[in-house]
C-alpha cells in the first residue's frame, strides 16, 4: 500500500464546470519525493489543494485520493483537520501570507503542535525552539518571539518549514516554496528542506515551475500541462530523454549554463506550441 494513491482526480470549477485538472493519477511511496512541474495555470496548485482538502466550495472534485489506503475525498472538515498537520502538511509559496501577521511566530508553530499532539502543553515552547534551531535558525529564541514582519523572507520560510514538519507528518506538500526568495536564500532553504526530509523520513510532493529547483529535492517528477500529466518518471530520465515536446522545452530552459552568452535563449515555444495559441 502506497502512502498516497491518486487516481482519476478531476477538478471542475464553478457553474460552467471549467476543468482545472483532468484525470490526474499517480502514487507516492513512503519517504519518496516527487516533483510536479509545469507553467502557471497548468494545475499544479489545484492538485495540491485537492490533496489537502483546501479547494473552495465551488470546486467539484471527482476521482480518488487515498492516504494509506483511506479515501480522503468527501471527508468532513473535522476529519480533514485531523489529517492535515498530522499526516499531511503544506508549505506555501508566500510565507508572508501563510503566517499570521499579528501573532509571534513561536506561538504559531506551537499552535500546530498543540492542535495535534497529546500532552505536550508543558514543554511545547521547548519543542518549538528545538524545531526552529533544526531548520537552521541559529537564534531560535529571538525568532520565536518575533512577529513575521520582523523576519527576512528566508527566515519566514524556514518558520513555515518548521511548522510543516513539527508533527512529523508522513507527507509534506511544498507549493513553490522558494519562488519568492532570492537565489542564495533559495539554495539555503532547499538544503534545509532536503536535510529535514531525510531526518524525519518524510515523503514530499514538491511543486515548482523550475526543473533545476525540483532536481535539488526530488528524484522523480510529473510534468503537468493544461491540467493533465503529460510525462512522468525519474528526473535523470526526463532530463536525458524527454519525450513530450513541452518537456523538451522545460529541460532546455532549465539549462541556461549551456547557452553561449549573448545568443538567444531557448524558450518552451521553440519546442511546443499549443494548438490555436498566438504566442
Amino acid at each position: 500500500m502506497s502512502l498516497l494513491e491518486v487516481s482519476g482526480l478531476t477538478v471542475r470549477f464553478g457553474r460552467r464546470q471549467v476543468v482545472a485538472i483532468d484525470d490526474v493519477s499517480f502514487t507516492l511511496g513512503e519517504q519518496e519525493r516527487l516533483g510536479i512541474i509545469g507553467e502557471s495555470g497548468s494545475g499544479k496548485t489545484v492538485t495540491a489543494l485537492a490533496l489537502m482538502g483546501l479547494l473552495p466550495e465551488n470546486a467539484a472534485v471527482t476521482g480518488s485520493v487515498r492516504v494509506r489506503g483511506q479515501e480522503t475525498l468527501g471527508l468532513g472538515e473535522a476529519e480533514y483537520a485531523k489529517l492535515r498537520g498530522d499526516t499531511l502538511s503544506m508549505v506555501f509559496q508566500e510565507p508572508m501570507t501563510a503566517l499570521d501577521p499579528t501573532m509571534r511566530v513561536g506561538r504559531q508553530v506551537a499552535e500546530v503542535l498543540l492542535l495535534h499532539a497529546r500532552n505536550t502543553s508543558g514543554n511545547s515552547r521547548q519543542r518549538v525552539i528545538e524545531m526552529l534551531r533544526r531548520v537552521g535558525l541559529a537564534d531560535a529564541e529571538r525568532i520565536a518571539d518575533s512577529y513575521p514582519h520582523q523576519l527576512s523572507g528566508g527566515q519566514r520560510q524556514r518558520v513555515c518549514v518548521a511548522m510543516a514538519l513539527i508533527n512529523s507528518p508522513d507527507l509534506v506538500i511544498c507549493d513553490e516554496p522558494t519562488t519568492a526568495l532570492d537565489v542564495t536564500v533559495q539554495a539555503r532553504v532547499l538544503k534545509v528542506l532536503d536535510e529535514m526530509l531525510d531526518a524525519e523520513h518524510t515523503a514530499c510532493l514538491f511543486i515548482s515551475h523550475d526543473l533545476a529547483v525540483v532536481s535539488q529535492v526530488c528524484s522523480h517528477v510529473l510534468v503537468m500541462l493544461d491540467g493533465r500529466i503529460v510525462e512522468s518518471g525519474p528526473i535523470h530520465r526526463i532530463f536525458a530523454t524527454p519525450s513530450h515536446p513541452y518537456t523538451k522545452g522545460l529541460v532546455a530552459t532549465a539549462q541556461l549554463d549551456k547557452v553561449a552568452p549573448g545568443s538567444p535563449l531557448p524558450t518552451v515555444a521553440d519546442f511546443y506550441t499549443r494548438a490555436g495559441a498566438t504566442r
Binding site: 539554495a187 532536481s215 535539488q216
Partner: peptide, 12 residues
C-alpha cells in the same frame, strides 16, 4: 563565488 554557486542547476 557563493552567489554563483547558489544558482540552481539540474542535479541528477
Amino acid at each position: 563565488a557563493s552567489l554563483w554557486a547558489a544558482v540552481p542547476r539540474i542535479k541528477v
